[in-house]
Design a protein around this nucleic acid. Structure first.
Length: 820
RNA sequence: GCGAAAGUGGCGGAAUUGGCAGACGCGCCAGACUUAGGAUCUGGUCCCGUAAGGGGUGGGGGUUCGAGUCCCCCCUUUCGCACCA
């Protein structure tokens, strides 16, 4: 191949050469596990994928050249709703649709030349994968980590299925941002993630390689809160209302007790109360008017229930209300309202003219409760609080808690915002939950040796709100595994987030058939050294995965608590100011780009247009810029390696060689340190451009040997970003090895060092001149040279030099006094 | 409201520790080669000014010989959380 750069010919040639990237488990080289989030096989890669995988592949290639044994796998998150929608809309079977999509996407991956070890590929909808979902389910069941309960759940009318709390975004479905989630009562399977809530929180200390932003989101989501439960006896009834508070110190300021409208005690409280029918109806209205995603700006409303409860500390009788801002799902469903020290209670009290009692004054005395136009929520000193007056909030909380425990009316409690993970989905295309229901024996798990429970293929998919499996008698009808009597199979399938919670363990040995993972392979490869993906998974996938990591550890399959040592979240790909998406109609199809410019150019553009953690604004003119650069590199190497390509005979000078070699070694230094640090590939590619510009300027004055060294090193430096091009250049330069097996270039610090340095000369901090100096020229000499500079001499003439700051190799700043 | 990140030319973005603001690319301008150029190569391109010079990193203040970078106040944008008691 000679002459001009033809991306198609080159890329096809090397794609056909079909280099395999096989990760060997074991061996003497250090291991490196680089993982990118696996895609849902929608049928086409989008630019977000290309970005994600270009970052990961650059890293994988760099690490290989640095001598690491690299595991870089890819797979398919193959279960999920779109496959069923395709079945409904187009009459294709979900399995066929999914497998077709996988094969076309795999072709895309290959065109891009991402260096995956395809022998590790996993596909979550295949029985040899999902049987292990079922296995985990059974293990969790054994350990009390999976359980079934009747509960109010989030329901997406469009998906016609249940959603986990994590999948509800601003009251709407995470897949349908304009579809409000409704509530439904259903019997559901749950994973007891709350049992690990504290560990999930604690172990964040180990995640120093994760973005602070993601940790903050997780911390927030877990929502640990340490407080106290206190019982308030109901006057005239043998019942008490348990409230949860983190501010026990404010209890003397309580002026009412509030419960959630759906609080189970409401019925009992209303018995024998005058007008209870009306009250009951009002409470009902309160309950129903509450939308799924209620928010702060909603008007606070309440209904007095006609009864009183006794404050166990002050002995005072407080009215009991039902209030719409009290959540049944959090704490105990009941609170004490302390208007003076809680903003929500303050607003509520103002609206219903409840008393506001001030019991905490600020330590500095500036807030004394005389005029209060908002709640004072800081810690302070207690007043109006009987025997606790004068204590600090911290002291009072401890003392009061002790007192409550002594009297048996309260105890300290830690609550979490995170809920157990509801995993039942009323859908077809997912992992069957391996249990049967027998009239006699109740729920009976399928024994481990009978897994997998296969998903039947002959199914009518209607999208009508119950699992399609219900209509498949040969699936539903089973024999009880205990009494051999007739039984019915569970027809819900698992949330697909189960699939993606542990796939990266299976990559280490996808052939494992005794256990979901091969513990030896896991031991060798884990933890994942670098996980790369979008930040949108901060609380869904990335919390579930950490949970599974701990379960896998507790099952003895791994010793590691945190699967991913480092996490990198790349920015979005934006076009016309909005995230690229089908609904916005601003998609750029990677296939079109590969066709027009080639995969090397597409990959390199995606890395060049912005640092990887920032959002990237798509601009096709920029793609053309990269194409120009790639062509320039190609022509440079081509004209010096192909006989008769027209390169003029050289008359090299040593000075020119030195100059370009210096640039070369500076470039190596820059790119190497960047790979080890902040991954600003945009500047690395810019550095390569500078080098190529320098080579264009100097090629005619360089010795063939120096020129060759530059071109060979350039091929190596480019290979993580543009592997096909780099490999082609490498071959044209006379080599047959794969660049992945070629060591990364090292730089010579002496060669990289500038000999002559431009030192800037400032007068009073303003740039006035530049002088040429030797590397490491002593201060005195710099000072003299600066003062001797004619322009400087002219400027400081007649003024008084007060001071001179000399920074060797950088600058001289002359401070002069104004006037004479 | 709380939390996090960010604000630099016409645009995407550089400036690793306080030391030449604007690397590199796009766009634009000019030139060369050319039948032609939306190819290629070379040069130019922050703003004002013919120039000397002056101004300039969201705004205001401060520290410093010197601030895009550090400190304080404010504004804007993006993202996340949002009655969690």
């Amino acid at each position: 191949m000679t002459g001009t750069y033809e991306h198609k010919a080159i890329e096809e040639k090397w794609m056909k050469a079909g280099k395999k990237y096989h990760a060997e488990t074991g061996g003497s080289r250090p291991k490196y596990y680089v993982l990118e989030m696996l895609p849902y096989p929608s049928g086409k890669l989008h630019m977000g994928h290309v970005r994600n995988y270009s970052i990961g592949d650059a890293l994988a290639r760099y690490k290989r050249m640095r001598g690491f044994s690299v595991l870089h796998p890819m797979g398919w998150d193959a279960y999920g709703l779109p496959a069923e929608n395709a079945a409904i809309n187009r009459g294709v079977h979900p399995k066929q649709w999914t497998l077709d999509n996988i094969s076309s996407m795999k072709r895309q991956f290959e065109r891009f030349g991402f260096s995956y070890d395809w022998s590790k590929e996993i596909t979550t909808c295949k029985p040899d994968y999902y049987r292990w979902n079922q296995w985990f389910f059974l293990k969790m069941l054994e350990r009390g980590l999976a359980y079934r309960k009747y509960s109010r759940v989030n329901w997406c009318p469009k998906c016609q299925t249940v959603l986990a709390n994590e999948q509800v975004v601003e009251g709407c479905c995470w897949r349908h941002e304009d579809t409000p989630v409704t509530q439904k009562e259903l019997e559901q399977w749950f994973f007891r993630i709350t049992q690990y809530a504290d560990q999930l929180l604690q172990d964040m200390d180990k995640l120093s390689g994760w973005p602070e932003r993601v940790l903050a989101m997780q911390r927030n989501w877990i929502g640990k809160s340490v407080g106290t439960r206190v019982q308030f006896p109901v006057v005239g009834l043998d019942e008490s209302i348990t409230i949860f508070t983190t501010r026990l110190d404010t209890i003397y300021g309580a002026t009412s007790v509030l419960v959630a409208p759906e609080h189970p005690l409401v019925g009992k409280l209303l018995e024998g109360v005058a007008g209870s029918e009306n009250i009951r109806a009002s409470v009902e209205r309160l309950r129903e008017s509450r939308p799924a995603g209620q928010s702060v700006d909603m008007e606070k409303e309440g209904v007095f229930l006609g009864r009183f409860a006794t404050n166990p500390f002050s002995g005072e009788q407080l009215p009991i209300w039902a209030a719409n801002f009290v959540l049944m799902e959090y704490g105990t469903g009941g609170i004490m309202a302390v208007p003076a020290h809680d903003q929500r209670d303050f607003e509520f009290a103002q609206k219903y003219r409840l008393p506001i009692r001030f019991v905490i004054r600020s330590v500095d005395g500036t807030v004394d409760g005389k005029r209060l136009d908002a709640a004072f929520t800081d810690y302070g000193l207690l007043v109006n609080s009987g025997p606790y007056n004068g204590l600090t909030s911290e002291e009072a909380i401890a003392k009061m808690r002790e007192e409550a425990e002594k009297r048996g009316i309260g105890r300290s409690e830690t609550t979490y915002r995170i809920k157990d993970w509801g995993i039942s989905r009323q859908r077809y295309w997912g992992t069957p939950i391996p249990v049967v229901y027998c009239a006699k024996c109740g729920m009976v798990p399928v024994p481990e040796d009978q897994l997998p429970v296969l998903l039947p293929e002959n199914v009518q998919i209607t999208g009508l709100g119950h699992s399609p499996l219900k209509d498949v008698p040969e699936f539903v009808n089973a024999t009880c595994l205990r009494c051999q009597g007739p039984a019915e199979r569970e027809t819900d399938t698992m949330d697909t987030f189960v699939d993606s919670s542990w796939y990266f363990y299976r990559y280490t040995d996808p052939t494992a058939d005794k256990l979901p993972v091969n513990p030896d392979a896991v031991k060798y490869w884990f933890p994942i050294d670098q996980y790369i993906g979008g930040v949108e998974h901060a609380i869904l996938h990335l919390i579930y995965s950490r949970f599974f990591g701990k379960v896998i550890r507790d099952l003895g399959l791994s010793e590691i608590s945190e699967p991913a040592e480092r996490l990198f979240t790349q920015g979005m790909v934006i076009k016309d100011g909005a995230k690229m998406s089908k609904s916005k109609g601003n998609l750029v199809d990677p296939d079109d780009m590969v066709e027009k410019y080639g995969s090397d150019t597409t990959r390199m553009y995606v890395l060049f247009a912005a640092p990887p953690e920032k959002d990237l604004e798509w601009n096709e003119a920029g793609v053309e810029g990269i194409y120009r650069f790639v062509s320039r590199v190609y022509r440079l190497v081509n004209r010096h390696t192909q006989p008769g390509a027209g390169a003029a005979p050289k008359t090299g000078t040593e000075a020119e060689d030195r100059k370009v070699l210096r640039k070369l070694h500076q470039t190596i230094r820059r790119i190497t340190s960047d790979f080890e640090g902040r991954w600003h590939f945009n500047t690395d590619i810019a550095a390569c451009m500078e080098l190529v510009n320098a080579l264009y300027t100097s090629e005619a004055q360089m010795s063939p040997r120096a020129l060759r060294e530059c071109m060979e090193t350039l091929a190596k430096l480019l290979s993580p970003f543009a592997p096909y091009l780099a490999q082609e250049l490498w071959q044209q330069l006379g080599h047959s090895q794969d660049l992945c097996d070629v060591p990364w270039p090292s730089f010579d610090p002496l060669l990289a060092k500038e000999e002559q340095i431009e030192v800037i000369v400032q007068v009073n901090g303003r740039l006035r001149s530049k002088i040429l100096a030797r590397q490491d020229m002593p201060e005195d000499e710099l000072r003299e040279t600066a003062l001797a500079d004619p322009r400087i001499a002219h400027i400081i003439n007649g003024t008084k030099v007060v001071k001179m700051i000399v920074v060797p190799n950088k600058l001289v700043n002359i401070v002069v006094a104004a006037g004479r």
